[in-house]
Structures are given as structure tokens and as C-alpha cells.
Design a protein around this nucleic acid. Structure first.
Lengths: 339, 339
DNA sequence: CTGTTAGCGCCTTCAA
DNA sequence: TTGAAGGCGCTAACAG
């Protein structure tokens, strides 16, 4: 992109051929005399010629890059998702153009627009943006995959099965005879948080219809887990199992419970969601959300579409997995993965 | 990048002006009649016109994108570095083009080349590539910053101060009267690992010249920490402090020690390096490596250079910070940050 | 098998 | 203040 580099014309002149021949050789096209080919390759080599990807994509109307717009999410997620995307994208010969998006819809729209002309498609993850904002931000003719975003937009989408995940946790606890379950939810504006909350209520209605389920509002941060426990105790709410909407809050719950001398999992069982590395270390039973696979899948679907397939505006759901550790007791029979 | 989008010509035609005027308006240039400007903007708006960044960068020879080539590193680092870069890059109106690089030099070269014509500069992090491979991979005229890479190349570089960090750990332990220190090193081909190993030996020579320092080879993975402890015990090597080359190994060390009934930090103190989130949770004393700041700094230096400044081929070092937790006892007086 | 020639979408002198 | 025209580097017909 800077001054010095040799262009296709330099190679052509030096090899005494036309740029077309150079282009043919560089792109492995047919019909080039072996001798000319050899000469051209030698010259290209000696000049250190590397095709200018920008020019190439302008002429081909194809950048082989896909834009990724992510919210400012936690370290674990970020790296996992991007890792999955990167794996797939590299295997397919594409590049990833990154752009973070802070919860602001205006900035989001700007980030999305700024990618026109540099990517062939986009992957947008916007758990906190509403349908309309997303719709306005995405150019209508831009192939895009929505990941864990608000439903309602006629776009191809991917989301983890929050409801089934939470339901698995509830089933697991219910199978142990626990009924007084409490859900510590995430921020209300967040689509994942909302689905988990609903999933909890639905699962309770199905699996323990005789009890009135309790939901305490949290915000996905560790502290709100501790706060939830404090509230529970202050109000004297009976509880033998806490289903947190994510692992960080579950950790807060565990710490508060133990600090208060409550036996975990003896008196109260705890489950989280996400399966962050800490969960494994601290023995937290949780729902594993396969973020890397999700990223890879999003890329795969998008590129498939870009290369001729259809990008059907349907939502695909990614299965989660219940990982039983020491915050819920014993190996329970028949409480496998999903519900 | 697809078919539908309106081009500058569509806007020009619709507004009954030349493309030059549209261009002037879009780029906020002077000398455009207010009336024409208004008309053009109205048309652009109604057509949903968004400038084609690819074409723009071809004609300007400026892509406002910077390429990032990273090794396949652990989640924590990856996200922290990229977060720092993203923050800076967004603030400056640039984009990040990502590319992973698996330890193979050929693939690395290819990854780097594939970015010509799509980025204005690059940030390369290659702790396991040697100088020559790096040199060959980077186009001579491509502005680039090396991050935690092999020294010796005449390029601008940034690296965390591994030696000072380890020295701080050693000083901290020595200040507690510990002398029988053991270092569990990282993989020998890794530049960070090597610098930490050397840093340990140098610090020991300086701070505890009377003892023969012990180094056990690890590989940055948790298991090798446990293996190191096993070896220590099998050989009956005396030891009252273990300085691991990274946190994961330190965790392995802690687990093995405790499993063997050894009191930590009573009998043996343990320190790590990196300060991953787990370190905080498990109370591991460690050296904090500010990866986000490092990423941001790399971007800042690169963009400064791209926008007129000089990109001097000098190495800048990023300071680390000793974080004392419970795997090394008590608050020790006078053992602050660096040595 | 090879060269010529239009663009891809935009920016920018140079004239008017 | 505005328009016409060339060019950024490359690819893809279309002729030879």
C-alpha cells in the first residue's frame, strides 16, 4: 500500500510481456507458454512482486474479507469467538476485519457502514441492540449473519440455545429433589439474559409446577451474584438451588454463600452459564456455550453463501452442554445434556 | 462490495452535478456552493450512498487499515492485546485486519504478504519466529511494529520487560529470606520464555550469588508445572520458592505442591507471570504484563508513523508490575515494582 | 498463446 | 464554484 512496491506493470515491462500475461500467471490461468510463464515468475520473484489485494478486489468486486462487529464483551468470549472465526476464515482463504461496537446504535451503524467496499459480508453480534437499529445499520444488499442478536430481522442468524441450556440446569437440580430454585438474571436489555430468564421460568413451570419460581435481577457481573444472595437472606427466601444467568454471577453467589457459612452444594446448589475457564477451576456446574464453534459456524455459513450458496434468513441454534461439577452434588442418573 | 449499492456516479447523475462535486461534498472540501452541497447531500441520503472504501483506498493509496498477525496464543492474551489495539485503532479511525499465524515460517510469510494492498502498516507478534524468517516475511517498504518478537531485525519493536519482571519476583522472594529458588521455564524456542529464564539467572546471580540456581524446563502449560514439582521431589532438590515462567505453570505447581501436602506459601512460595484472571482468583503472586496497553501502544506508534511521524527502528520496553498475593507471604517492605 | 482495452469506484489536478 | 479527464493496480473480455 505504500510507494515502493513493484506493480504488475513493472513485472510486465521487465519480462517483456503484457500485463495480461502476468495476471494470467499470477492467477494460475491456463494457456501460458511454459517459457513465458517461467520468465514472468522469475521477474516477479526478483522484483519481490506481490499482487495488490486492494486493486484486485476492486476489479473483482470481491475482497475476500469478512467484517466482524462485536460488542465490547468479556475476554473469554471475545477470544473464543474470534478464534473460531479465524480458524474457519483462514481455512477458506479469507480475512477478518474487526470492529468493536459499543452499545451505542449510532456508533454501531457507523461501524457497519465503514465496512462497505472492504468486506464481502459481515458477522454482527449485538445482544443489546434492538431489531430496528440493526436493520437500519445493515446495508440491505450486504450479506450478513447475526449472532446472538435480537430476533425479528429477516436475516440469517445464529444463537446459542439459551432456553435449552437453562432448562438442562433446572432439570438437573430438580432431579436431585430440589424445588426452591432461584434464578439470578442478567441485564434486561440483553437478549441472552432475557432468553435465559424465560427459559428458567418455562422450565420451572414444566418441571416444578407446584412452586413459585423466584427471579432476582443481576447484571452479569460478579458483584450482583453476591448482592442476590444478600437479598435472598435479608428477605428470608427459602432456596436450595441457585441458577445464575452466567458464570461470573454464579461465582459471586458461591463466594457470598460460603462467606455466610452456607454449605455448597449441601444446602444450596449453584449453576452458572458459559463455562469460562474459572468455572472449571472452581468446580462450578455450568452450561457450556461453544463460542468458538459458533464463530466458525457463522463464518462457514456466510462464506458458503458468498460463494454461491443461499443465505437463507433463518435462525440456526447452537446446542449447549450441561457440565456437572462440584457445586451440584453427585452424579445424577438420567440428567444428560438437553431437556 | 456487492452489486446493488449506489455509486458516486449515481449520486452525481441524480443531483445533476459531476462526480467531482459529489466527491468534494463527501469529503468536506471547500468551495462548494451551499445549494449544490445541500442537493447532493439530499440525494446521497435518499440513495443510501456510502463511499466504497476499497475504491477510495486505491485512489488514495491509503487504506486506513492496519494488519495484525498474531500467533495462536492463549485466550487471555489474545483478547487483551486485541482489545488494546482495537481501542486505539477505533479512536484513530482505522480498522484492524486480523490474521493468525501458526508457528510455521512459510505460512507466516504468506499471511504477511496477503496483506499487501489492504493495510497501511502491520503489527506482528511472533515470539517463536526467528529474526531471519521475520525479515523475509515483511515487505521492506511496509511500516511495521514488532511485538514481543525476536530482536535483531532493524524494525520498530515493543516488548514487555521480561527480565525486570522476573527480577522483581526474585527480589521479592529473596527479601523474605528465601534462597533455594527454582525457575520453571517456558519452551526454549519462545523469546519470552528465554528472556524470563535469563532474567531469573541474572537476578539470582545478583541477589543470591551464593546459591546455584535451578531451572527446570517447562512448556508454558499447566501440566508441566506439576511435572516440575514431581521432578523436584523425585530428585530431592531443596526448594523454598518456585518462580514459574507463566501463570498456568504456576497453577500446576501450586496444585501439585498442595496435593503433595506441601504448605504454600509456608514451605514453598510460588510466583507466576502474566496475571491472568485465574491468578487473581487463586491468589497467585505474579507479574502483571499489561497486554492491552501494549497493543494500544503498538497501534499508536504505528499510526503516528503513518501520519507523518518517523517510525524509528528502536525497541521500546513496556514495564511490568509485581502483584503480591497469597502464594508469597506477608507484605514485604521495600519490594516494590521493579528492581 | 498473447496483447489491447475497458472498466472496478473514487480522488484530484487542470481548465473553464 | 464546477466539470472533464487521467490514474490508483488489477482483471476480463475480445481480438489477433
Amino acid at each position: 500500500m505504500r510507494q515502493g512496491s513493484a506493480t504488475i506493470r513493472d513485472v510486465a515491462r521487465e519480462a517483456a510481456v503484457s500485463v495480461a500475461s502476468v495476471s494470467r500467471v499470477m492467477n494460475g490461468h491456463v494457456s501460458v507458454h511454459p517459457e513465458t510463464r517461467a520468465r514472468i515468475m522469475a521477474v516477479a520473484q526478483s522484483l519481490g512482486y506481490v499482487p495488490h489485494a486492494g486493486a484486485r478486489s476492486l476489479s473483482l468486486s470481491r475482497s475476500h474479507a469478512i467484517g466482524v462487529v462485536l460488542p465490547d464483551l468479556h475476554g473469554e468470549f471475545f477470544s473464543e469467538i474470534v478464534r473460531g472465526m479465524d480458524r474457519e476464515v483462514t481455512a477458506r482463504g479469507y480475512h477478518l476485519l474487526l470492529s468493536n461496537m459499543h452499545a451505542d446504535a449510532v456508533l454501531a451503524a457507523q461501524a457497519v457502514r465503514s465496512m462497505r467496499g472492504r468486506v464481502d459480508g459481515m458477522i454482527v453480534m449485538a445482544p443489546q441492540l434492538d431489531t430496528q437499529a440493526l436493520d437500519e445499520a445493515l446495508p440491505p444488499d450486504m450479506p450478513a449473519m447475526l449472532v446472538n442478536s435480537s430476533p425479528g430481522v429477516a436475516r440469517a442468524a445464529l444463537r446459542i440455545d439459551n432456553a435449552a441450556g437453562i432448562a438442562a440446569s433446572v432439570a438437573h437440580l430438580v432431579a436431585q429433589g430440589r424445588r426452591a430454585l432461584v434464578h439470578v438474571s442478567g441485564p434486561p436489555a440483553n437478549i441472552d439474559a432475557e432468553e435465559r430468564r424465560r427459559g428458567f421460568l418455562d422450565a420451572m413451570a414444566r418441571l416444578a409446577p407446584e412452586v413459585e419460581p423466584v427471579v432476582i435481577a443481576g447484571d452479569f457481573h460478579e458483584e450482583s451474584g453476591g448482592a442476590a444472595v444478600a437479598m435472598l437472606r435479608a428477605r428470608g427466601i427459602a432456596c436450595d438451588g441457585i441458577v445464575a444467568a452466567n458464570d461470573m454471577m454464579a461465582l459471586g453467589v458461591m463466594a457470598a454463600l460460603r462467606a455466610a457459612g452456607v454449605d455448597v452444594p449441601g444446602a444450596v446448589a449453584v449453576t452458572g452459564f458459559d463455562d469460562i475457564p474459572l468455572a472449571r477451576y472452581l468446580g462450578l456446574t455450568t452450561i457450556r456455550a461453544p463460542m468458538a464453534e459458533m464463530g466458525a459456524r457463522a463464518v462457514a455459513r456466510l462464506i458458503d453463501a458468498l460463494e454461491g450458496g443461499e443465505l437463507r434468513a433463518e435462525e440456526e441454534t447452537i446446542a449447549t452442554e450441561l457440565v456437572i461439577r462440584s457445586t451440584t452434588p453427585g452424579s445424577v442418573i438420567g440428567s444428560g445434556g438437553s431437556v
